[in-house]
Nucleic acid binder design. Structure first.
Length: 215
DNA sequence: CAAGAGATCATCT
DNA sequence: GATGATCTCTTGA
């Protein structure tokens, strides 16, 4: 089931947790790439000092004031994109950052998009005790910049809708249920500048899942 | 293995 | 002019 605006027009922390186990679907021509969301972060509003919109409504952040179910894509460090979905009421700037996926469909297509070195040249940390092929799979979309590259997500998708019928990028419920006991809460990554908000446990991931980002 | 630097640019001061 | 919701590669122990 294609998630609609009612799903996203809710408390951001709830949406962030409920997105675990949902499937991100990217249509490229006839291809439908997809992966299960295994890690998210909540950016809960203008008072959240880690939230880009805490600095007000600017050209970059105006998309966060759009209705729930709008994509917010921005470039970070000059090289990577980050994918967020806008939540809560229109004009309340908040969003969920999608940080990692467990690839499920058209994995070869994602590997091409990532432009990776052959797995034969891959160095697997010895304590992981994994084959290079398995390691190549795990590191395909285990971070916000990597998953955007794997699914060819860039600024062209910024401010587009995830809930319209013809969306090229949207989220599906395929009936996977993640119990509360399997959701780990931790500090958000890379927000040391956010004062009293930097230590809030607004990052969520599926306990024990191999595809969660390495921190 | 850990730690550090470099890539590279949109955004805000 | 500085910095960042990141990732990868190099260095050195």
């Amino acid at each position: 089931m294609h998630l609609n605006s009612h799903f996203f027009k809710r408390n951001t922390v709830l949406v962030a947790q409920d997105l675990l186990g949902k499937f991100l679907v990217r249509k490229i021509g006839k291809n439908k790439l997809s992966g299960m969301i295994v890690e998210t972060e909540a950016y809960v509003g203008p008072h959240d000092l880690a939230c880009h919109a805490s600095k007000g409504k600017t050209d970059r952040t105006k998309v966060m004031f759009e209705p729930a179910g709008t994509w917010y894509v921005y470039m970070i460090y000059g090289m990577y994109y980050c994918l967020n979905i806008v939540t809560e009421a229109k004009n309340y700037p908040s969003a969920v950052l999608i940080r990692a996926l467990e690839p499920t469909n058209l994995i070869e297509f994602m590997v091409k998009n990532r432009n990776l070195v052959p797995s034969s040249q891959l160095s697997v940390p010895s304590r992981k005790k994994l084959s290079t092929d398995h390691w190549a799979l795990i590191t395909l979309s285990d971070g916000p910049g990597k998953l955007c590259r794997a699914l060819r997500i860039d600024k062209k998708l910024n401010c587009t809708s995830a809930v319209s019928k013809d969306a090229k990028l949207y989220i599906e419920d395929r009936g996977v249920k993640i119990s509360k006991a399997k959701i780990v809460k931790s500090k958000r990554i890379g927000v040391a500048y956010a004062g009293s908000w930097k230590d809030r446990k607004l990052r969520f991931y599926i306990k024990g899942n191999q595809f969660v980002s390495q921190v």
